[in-house]
Amino acid sequence: MEPLKLKYREALTEAMAKAMRKPNTLLIGQGVTDYKGIWGTTLGLAEKYPDRVIETPLSEDAIAGICLGASLNGMYPINTHIRVDFSLLIFNQLINLIAKYKYMFGGLFEIPMMFRLVIGRSWGQGAQHSQSLQSLLAHIPGLVVIMPSNSQSILESYDYALNHYRGPVVMLEHRLMYELEFEQRNENNHPFETRVDRKGTDITIIATSVMVLEVRRACDYLEKFGIYPEIIDLHSISHPNRELIFNSVKKTGRLLVADTSWLPYGVAAEMSRIISERDPSILKKPIKSLGMAYAPCPTAKVLEDMYYPDVHDLVLSVLELTDKKATQKIPIPIKTPMTDFYKHFKGPF
């Protein structure tokens, strides 16, 4: 019997459909009633729930305030943003109020709600429409920040957030993954938990979102030459499992971090802090990190292709950290843009 396969967007469609069956759920944002329905993830919901699926004007801060008020009055708002860049306009509500309400009022008020934010590249998106701002959000106490890397993670995390967690959750969905198909696994992970994606012995690679998939591709290549990395899907950016991460690095003695965003003050820096503050002596080599070039994203595709790390950079980094580059003549894969492997841009988002 073939394993069940589900596309990333299909898992989101299922998660949104399940959410709307609850009479207190509110789906609100730009594009929720669009004919493409945010890559198909909200299609049909406006017709089925016309009073609770609400298209909004370009008033992000005001809409976030409405969501806050709705949550305080027993509703569960799901606020969508077709680009994470647009969510910068809700930071006053999100950071100054939503993240702090429970703390400021001694636990008397809970703010269960969700923000769906789309991150990452396609091509031609430019500097203002292709960012990955997870580190900004994970810096704020009171927020749970999740970056699902596959369909199963979406189903588990969205269900837990909607039905069990009594606080604000930010879900970051990568634009390149919507059309990708994933085999469903029965791994019994906690929905908000860091997880070991693949066991290995030679090096620990911690990855986020679509970089988990790039790391898998790199590891498939490296295993042909007898190099077996351990892959850790960070998943929850705001609440990493420090013990799991430390024990993996203690076992392998080497750490490579692959993030979808810039490196300074980011996820990679936080992973380094976990090791360096506890026991840096477990490292056989200094930690190495990969992320976007530290500059605004270029619009031209030929420049954008150089802007992001890929299998070429991952393999090269692993060989350097495992000392295989100097001792073995392992060919480095040609640098190939992720869009050639995952998705070609079709618009409009």
Results as ranks from 00 to 15, higher is better:
residue 186 N to P: 02
residue 189 N to L: 14
residue 191 P to T: 13
residue 191 P to F: 09
residue 198 R to Y: 07
residue 199 K to Q: 13
residue 199 K to H: 13
residue 199 K to W: 03
residue 200 G to C: 06
residue 200 G to N: 10
residue 200 G to A: 12
residue 202 D to K: 07
residue 204 T to Q: 04
residue 204 T to V: 07
residue 205 I to K: 05
residue 205 I to S: 05
residue 206 I to W: 00
residue 206 I to C: 07
residue 207 A to M: 01
residue 208 T to C: 14
residue 210 V to D: 03
residue 211 M to P: 01
residue 211 M to G: 04
residue 212 V to W: 04
residue 213 L to W: 09
residue 215 V to M: 01
residue 218 A to S: 09
residue 219 C to R: 10
residue 221 Y to H: 08
residue 222 L to S: 02
residue 222 L to I: 11
residue 223 E to W: 00
residue 223 E to S: 13
residue 224 K to G: 10
residue 227 I to D: 08
residue 230 E to G: 07
residue 230 E to Q: 14
residue 232 I to W: 14
residue 232 I to V: 15
residue 233 D to Y: 06
residue 234 L to I: 11
residue 236 S to W: 12
residue 237 I to N: 03
residue 238 S to I: 07
residue 238 S to Y: 10
residue 238 S to Q: 10
residue 243 E to H: 12
residue 243 E to R: 15
residue 244 L to S: 02
residue 244 L to H: 00
residue 245 I to K: 12
residue 246 F to Q: 08
residue 247 N to F: 01
residue 247 N to L: 10
residue 248 S to F: 07
residue 248 S to Q: 09
residue 249 V to P: 06
residue 250 K to D: 11
residue 251 K to H: 05
residue 251 K to S: 10
residue 252 T to D: 00
residue 254 R to Y: 06
residue 255 L to A: 11
residue 256 L to S: 06
residue 257 V to A: 08
residue 257 V to F: 09
residue 259 D to C: 04
residue 259 D to N: 08
residue 260 T to Y: 05
residue 263 L to C: 13
residue 263 L to F: 08
residue 264 P to E: 05
residue 265 Y to L: 14
residue 265 Y to A: 15
residue 265 Y to I: 14
residue 266 G to T: 12
residue 269 A to W: 09
residue 270 E to H: 11
residue 270 E to W: 05
residue 270 E to I: 04
